[in-house]
Design a protein around this nucleic acid. Sequence first.
DNA 1: CAGAAAAGAGAGCACCGCTCTTGCTTCGGG
DNA 2: CCCGAAGCAAGAGCGGTGCTCTCTTTTCTG
Lengths: 234, 234
Amino acid sequence: MSAIKGARERARDEVTAAIKEEARRQLAREGAAKLSLRAVARELGMVSSALYRYFPSRDDLLTALIIDAYDALGAAAEDALAAASGGSPDQRWTAVCRAVREWALAHPHEYALIYGTPVPGYTAPSDTTGPAARVGLALISVLRDAHEAGELHPTDASAAPAPVQEDARRLGVELGVDLPAPALAGLTATWAQLFGLVNFEVFGQFNHVVEARDEFFDQAAAGLARQVGLLPGE
Amino acid sequence: MSAIKGARERARDEVTAAIKEEARRQLAREGAAKLSLRAVARELGMVSSALYRYFPSRDDLLTALIIDAYDALGAAAEDALAAASGGSPDQRWTAVCRAVREWALAHPHEYALIYGTPVPGYTAPSDTTGPAARVGLALISVLRDAHEAGELHPTDASAAPAPVQEDARRLGVELGVDLPAPALAGLTATWAQLFGLVNFEVFGQFNHVVEARDEFFDQAAAGLARQVGLLPGE
DNA sequence: CAGAAAAGAGAGCACCGCTCTTGCTTCGGG
DNA sequence: CCCGAAGCAAGAGCGGTGCTCTCTTTTCTG
């Protein structure tokens, strides 16, 4: 409660931060599979058992890194959105897509941690859901602004089935956004498809298939914008 | 060279198959991270060092499982395509998409092995590229047939940039398919997007977001078909 | 200031991938 | 046919892992 912290608490925060820092370094160098608690402790000059005072298990350390990665990617997306605040909706859409791709290519192992194979079980701790939503929320805000400006052109060639519409309506209520249900349903699919593109590039599925990666992605991102109802602006 | 194999060679094949079988069982139960050579050997009643006569390392065992997974998924896609051979192009497209999704949901760990985080380094052994291409080839064949029947409707709102077109042209030559370069470029993006949808569902990203999974996927698959130039048939 | 709580150190357990050496079995050519 | 070569199983062992337990030292608090 008190803002002034004792030496003990301060030291604890520092050590915790140092552990995460070193772990992130090893993660970036070798990947999550090779991340070893003992190696982190060794590098920090402490004995491995002491590390368990800060993280009860290896998975907990990884969870902390996962949250940080979600936050870093979310921040990158939000920054790109802010930087493109003057542009047309489809320009801002593309800016967010590009930011996601660039962050992923710059931090492949951290990206793999959050959008690759889930490491622990199949259910992520609930602490991760907030940070995990940031990219999605950035995409939503592009659509919301476009909608309020009357620049969102519905593009549903065939109406979404009722259960899908219902999911979208519920999602809109949960997030407190006022968007047509079909638009929100379409956005959800597009959101997943965006990460499909990034996944294939980061994980090497485009090797020997796509060489002009930048142009390819921009083209695809423009397609996603169109799919979600944002026509090329200006 | 001779089809008749000695007892020794036959025994070797049997043991190799048994190892892969047990490994696949452990993979399905616990995931790739927990797959242990020693546990496989133990289950088979042999000592761990003996296993190295058949697979020089754990990564080689995993590579064998990866190839098998690519082949199983590819076969599922091809079977679905054959079963839908009477339908319209967009029906066949959807059939392939559904087959991919269903196989992935039925074999999540094997799916994760091939479309999740790459386990070894960043470059897959070249033995995997053949099997890995089978799903893509199934999708291509849907488009090729539609193209030959004159049912492929170009949908490029904006022309693809030159380098992307060039990639597509080269890809067409390599695969020996006669499709317009823009269609092939669009298909590549759509291919990645399809796996984005499957990834998010298998890896739990749709938890608390999409509940009506079947309807959602069908709707999205129909959108992908449209995006690639296949209009709802009949 | 004394007791409680937190932190570090070290030993140890069970497991892992992988290597090396030692015998045994099977195969093929003189 | 027989004997050397090759293939194979077994065991011991190395260095590494995550994690637990005990013991001592440090720090905070009533």
